[in-house]
Nucleic acid binder design. Sequence first.
RNA 1: GGCGGGUUGGCGGAGAGGUUACGCAGCGGAUUGCAAAUCCGUGAAGACCGGUUCGAUUCCGGUACCCGCCUCCA
Length: 472
Amino acid sequence: MVEIRLTNTRTRKKEAFTPIDPRNVRLYLCGPTVYDRAHLGNARPVLVFDVLVRLLRHVYGADHVTYVRNFTDVDDKINARAAATGRTIREITEETVAWYHADMDALGAARPDHEPRATEYIVQMIAMIETLIANGNAYEVEGHVLFDVRSFPEYGRLSGRSVDDMIAGARVEVAPFKRDPMDFVLWKPSEADQPGWDSPWGRGRPGWHIECSAMSAALLGPSFDIHGGGIDLQFPHHENEVAQSCCAHPQADFAHVWLHNEMLQVEGKKMSKSLGNFFTVRDLLDRRIAGEVIRYVLLSTHYRKPMDWTQGKADEARDILWQWRLLSKNVEPAEAPHPELVEAIANDLNTPGAIAVLHRLKDDPPLLLSSARFIGLLQVGDDEWMRADFDALDSQVALGDFDQVLTRLQDRLAQIRADAMTSKDFSRLDRLKSALIDAGLEVRMSKAGIELVVSPTTVQKNVARIAEDLET
RNA sequence: GGCGGGUUGGCGGAGAGGUUACGCAGCGGAUUGCAAAUCCGUGAAGACCGGUUCGAUUCCGGUACCCGCCUCCA
């Protein structure tokens, strides 16, 4: 069996992965707060986990993995969006969930087994908060319930901070009713115009952190295998989850392995609205950058390193995928991926190493195909982006399939070339050739004949025009 | 101030204490009416300063610079 090694934030080491129960390997990934389109950085942990889940299913069996990713659908940002647009919270969250699904689908990320919504687990959250109060880890004050960080000696261990350090560096205004400045909210009161649920502490809504603790416990149990997210969630979100879950389930030990991906940058800078380099996955798709291309770029840097999104990388990825697509056209995939590729992924999800393996498989298209698919590339149906549409074409001639246009062109060119070879006058042929190259076509002439190959830059419309002119 | 990530050849980007990463670009050759594609070959690296070692880009310490978290942004 393939040995999987993962870097565990909890221990700061790369460790051999041993599931609690090999018949049911359980993972949890913090999902989005649904108030707007997912930006490119949101896609990174999703793809990291997508690759991880593919590996785990390969090793432990497709039916022996449970992958949970939540939707946070109660949050003050959502409330603000509703107030600003005059729409209902429900409309906004439903719409955003649908967007999220569409965008992540486009990146080839398989849907998790469960996608719980926070609002469906309020009962479990209230129960967990009651337990925390009963255990002496939380207290109610002025309609709020707060977690008492001093009651959990391990607090700060995941993120490598001590409570005292955090207080020293804190720049937060501390609510006067907190026992300790680092205490965080489990439950807070809602105004009449805010979403709220009845609870032992009055009508209110949950704090952010308790959601993930309650949903992971409900769907995966108090102890499970892998928990992940962006490194920015390590503190406070994940630290607080650990505190809540471990105190509510003292006999359990919550997530065994913590995986954190480093952040994404754009052209060397942090992606932010103020820098004007902020964009969503949908923005890229709308610019006709294929989901598969985005996936390739994100997987071409190891998940624990900061990664830079650049247009140059997107272009290179497009060209490589195009080449692989041509190579594996009409090819049946081999039965299994290349062992070295699986080994690379098993070694702390070394996706750049896996891509290097793919490059070496150019001579074996079936194996290239099965191996690429192991990391979600060259999937059936993801090659839509290779077909330019004819919508804008206002040709007089009915064109039919573009392949037929190319075949006709090839034949005409071959004829013209044969004539040129005898007359030694290549001027017309050269003019045609450069016109076709300008239109983005590859023109391959050999003794065997002429082959026209579409490239990522082919403007089919222009090629069709040339073909048309040649006919008349 | 505290915690963490990064710094590899022109660009992107890995593994490994000693033997080719890989890709893109470049260069040389084969091939071609000319090209393209393809094939063959090839140069090019490890921020800086110390230490450990027979040997370090890889381990340890320090310096510099970049980035992030500590503020419910993955």
